[in-house]
Design a protein around this nucleic acid. Structure first.
Lengths: 147, 147
DNA sequence: CAAAAAGTGTAGCCAAGGCTACATATTGGA
DNA sequence: TCCAATATGTAGCCTTGGCTACACTTTTTG
C-alpha cells in the first residue's frame, strides 16, 4: 500500500461522489432543455423552427444545431422532416414548459434577492439546469411570502 | 430564401447567443474548480492529494482523474511528480479559496431562502459555477441584512 | 526480502458538443 | 422559368470527460 501513514483521511464519502454525479448528469440534459425551450419559442412566435434560426439565436453553427436536433429526436423530444424544420413531441413540449417556468422562477428569485436584472438573466441561463424540485418549491414559497 | 413568409421573427438577438456562450464557457471551467477545491481539501486534511483519493471522492475512475490533472497542469493550476501526488500552484490555491467561499455563500443563501440543507448542498454543487461576481455581491448583501 | 497489494501511468475506446468545408434542396425574384 | 441566394444535410476533425484494460512503481506484509 502506498504510504498510508496518515489515518484513513475521510470516510470514503460517497456523498460527494453522488452530488458530483448528479451535477454532471444535470449538465448533460441542460442543452436539450435550452433547445426545446427555444424551439417552442420559435414555434409559438413564427409557426416554425428552422435550424438556421436556432443557430443564430444560440450563436452556434448550423451544423452543430443539426447534430443536436438529431439527439433531441433520439431522446424522443422532437421530430423533423428534411428541409421542413423541427417540431416538439408532447414530451418535448412538456419539457419546454417546465424549463420556461423554472427559468422565470429563478430570475424572479434572484431579482427579489437584489441581483441586478441583467446579471439575473445571465446567471439564470446557467443556474436553472441545476435546480432540484425541492429547491424549486422553496423558491416559489419564498416569492409568495416576499412580495 | 426558404419560406420567410412570416416577418423577421425576432431582432437577430445577439443577447441570447451571448448568454448562452457565457454559460457554456462557465461550464468548461466548472470541473477545474471542483478539482482544485477537492485537492486543497485533501492537502489540508492529510498533507497529500493522490489520484486515487480524488477518484474515490468524485466517483470517477483514476484514469479520468489522471487525465484531468494533466489539464490542471496545462492550465497552470497544479503540479505533480510521478507517483507523488498533486499540489496546487498559487493560482490553483487562489481559485480553490474563491471556489470554496462561493460555495459556502451559495449554500447559505439557499438555506436562508428556505431550501432544505441537503437540497441546498446538492444544488450548490451545480449552481456555484454559474454565479457571476455581481450576483455574488448581491448574495452577500442579502445575507447581511437577512440574519 | 520477496510476493502481494495498492497506487499510478498509458493507450485506446466512446459520446457530446463544438467547428469548417463541401454537397444538395428550396425558394424568391429577375 | 431558371438561377442565385439561402437553408439544410453530411463528413471529418477537435477537445472534454467519461470508461476499461494493461503495464509498471511503490508499499506492505508474510
Amino acid at each position: 500500500m502506498l504510504k498510508s501513514s496518515t489515518p484513513p483521511p475521510m470516510p470514503a464519502e460517497p456523498t460527494q461522489a453522488r452530488r458530483f454525479s448528479k451535477a454532471r448528469a444535470a449538465q448533460s440534459y441542460a442543452l436539450l432543455e435550452d433547445y426545446v425551450e427555444l424551439i417552442d419559442d420559435l414555434l409559438t412566435a413564427t409557426g416554425e423552427a428552422r435550424a438556421t434560426d436556432i443557430a443564430r439565436r444560440l450563436g452556434v453553427s448550423h451544423a452543430t444545431v443539426v447534430k443536436t436536433i438529431g439527439r433531441l429526436k433520439r431522446e424522443g423530444l422532437a421530430t423533423s422532416l428534411p428541409y421542413r424544420g423541427v417540431f416538439l413531441t408532447p414530451a418535448g413540449e412538456t419539457l419546454a414548459n417546465k424549463s420556461r417556468a423554472r427559468h422565470r422562477l429563478v430570475v424572479a428569485v434572484l431579482t427579489a434577492i437584489g441581483v441586478p436584472p441583467e446579471a439575473a438573466e445571465q446567471d439564470a441561463e446557467g443556474l436553472e439546469h441545476h435546480i432540484s424540485p425541492a429547491t424549486l418549491r422553496a423558491f416559489a414559497a419564498f416569492l409568495k411570502k416576499q412580495p
